[in-house]
Computed example of a mutant assay.
Amino acid sequence: FKCHELTGFGGAIKNLGMGCASRKGKLVQHSTVAPVVAEKYCIGCGICPRACAHDAILITGGKAIIDPQKCTGCSRCITVCPVKAINIQWNEAADLVMRKMAEYALGALSGKSGKAIYINFITQVSPACDCYGHSDAPIVNDIGICVSTDPVAIDQACADLVNGARGNEGSALQSGFEPGGDKFRGVWPEITWEVQLEHGEKIGLGSRKYELVRV
């Protein structure tokens, strides 16, 4: 369980929706995400082309250029840019990604009612996706492990536990340090992370209501 630059956090819903989707399904889920380069800030350092797994970025005229035909919207370039010159065109993109993700998660569970359990490790809660070859300081101290038969409930519980903890100074967290503060918006303020939970509950993926039993 960690923060994520497109969905606020990644937990059971994201692992189901993205992790169990085919390559085509992953591309469909990311299809509304379009990173753009702010040329006035780009220094042409060449880090983003080397980080891109899809050869979608070239340095031309001393500036990074993203090929929209090759870009899958994975956002890796955003996290590696040293001058924050690459960003998502934030309109409805992130919300649509989360809705698609919840729907793909529901599809992954089709025919498996009562046969799945979900385990979220709230440890080393990194500020960005853990698919990169690097990590950053955790935004909160380790909290524990959650187990549930409901993917929506476990993600809601984990989000509440992270937000209920004290944020770590010196991490990527910019606000919400106090217990009860929104840690996910403290890292990614543009993201309405609740969308994945709201939509998941709406389509019958699970319930946001839960009972926390500590053992």
Rank of each mutant, 00 (worst) to 15 (best):
D182I: 07
K112I: 00
I65G: 02
S113E: 15
A93R: 03
T79L: 11
G114L: 03
D95T: 12
I117S: 11
V213L: 14
V83H: 14
D155P: 04
A34G: 06
V83C: 10
V28C: 01
G114A: 06
S126Y: 03
I66G: 13
T149G: 11
N120F: 01
A172Q: 07
N15C: 01
G107H: 02
C129M: 08
C48T: 15
S171N: 08
D67S: 12
C77H: 05
I43V: 15
K63Q: 07
S171K: 04
N87T: 15
A159D: 03
H4V: 06
C158I: 11
E103F: 01
D130C: 03
G200E: 01
S31M: 13
A64M: 11
P127Q: 06
F1H: 03
D150W: 01
L173T: 03
E211I: 11
A102Q: 02
I59W: 13
N163M: 04
G73E: 07
C74D: 14
N168I: 03
F1D: 05
T192R: 15
I78D: 04
G111H: 10
I78F: 01
S135Y: 06
I154T: 07
C81L: 09
C71G: 12
A56E: 08
L205V: 06
D142V: 02
Q196G: 12
A51L: 06
G170C: 10
N163D: 13
D155I: 05
A108R: 01
W193I: 03
S75D: 13
M101E: 15
I191G: 03
I59T: 11
I78N: 05
I43L: 15
V162H: 03
P127V: 05
N91I: 10
I66R: 12
T60A: 13
E198A: 14
L16S: 10
V36P: 03
G133Y: 06
V36E: 14
T72D: 11
I139M: 07
I154W: 02
I59E: 09
E103R: 12
I203N: 09
